[in-house]
């Protein structure tokens, strides 16, 4: 009786946008505020059923990566954030990806509210933007220049010294 009133889920099922199912234990899922919120809501309602959380914006290969990250971080959840081993792991983890994957991962981290992963991705992208010229940024990130030549000249003029 007591257990049903304070029900507690041990696992959830997460569905990717391409309809693959991932069984995730609660501690890992809680790394994502979005999943945690869903779990908390269900627990409040006292549901004992395994819940299915559809993520319409995240494909299975990106979700695999997010969950890999969450799993690792769940292992270290009780440590302080300055764990060197974890930092090293984060670095190795991101290093493997091309920009397209990194962008998808950033988007997924944002959507799933996995703040530490989002910060990590943003920092990684920021570090690669540093010291680049405008042209290099466009090239590396494949960004279309949608300014007219005049508009672009005006912007550069306004802060001319930054473009020297």
């Amino acid at each position: 009786m007591a257990s049903s009133s304070s029900s507690s889920l041990s696992r959830v099922v997460v569905k990717s946008s391409d309809n693959n199912l991932f069984v995730v234990n609660k501690k890992v899922a809680s790394q994502s505020q979005l999943l945690k919120q869903c779990i908390d809501n269900m627990e409040e309602k006292g549901t004992n059923d395994v819940i299915l959380i559809p993520l319409s914006n995240v494909t299975s290969n990106i979700l695999t990566l997010v969950l890999e990250y969450c799993e690792k971080h769940a292992d270290f959840a009780d440590d302080d954030n300055n764990n060197q081993e974890l930092k090293q792991w984060d670095h190795e983890f991101l290093k493997k990806f091309d920009y397209a994957t990194l962008n998808s991962l950033t988007m997924a981290a944002d959507y799933m509210v996995t703040k530490s992963l989002l910060n990590l991705c943003c920092q990684f992208i920021a570090d690669s933007i540093k010291d680049l010229t405008v042209q290099q940024i466009r090239q590396i990130f494949d960004i279309k220049n949608d300014f007219t030549p005049q508009e672009e000249a005006d912007i550069k003029n306004e802060n001319a010294w930054a473009f020297r």
């Binding site: 933007i129 680049l132 010229t133 405008v134 940024i137 960004i143 279309k144 300014f147 802060n159 473009f163």
Partner: peptide, 8 residues
């Protein structure tokens, strides 16, 4: 500032 000239 440099990035501001990349795109809108």
């Amino acid at each position: 500032l440099r990035s501001s000239a990349v795109s809108k």
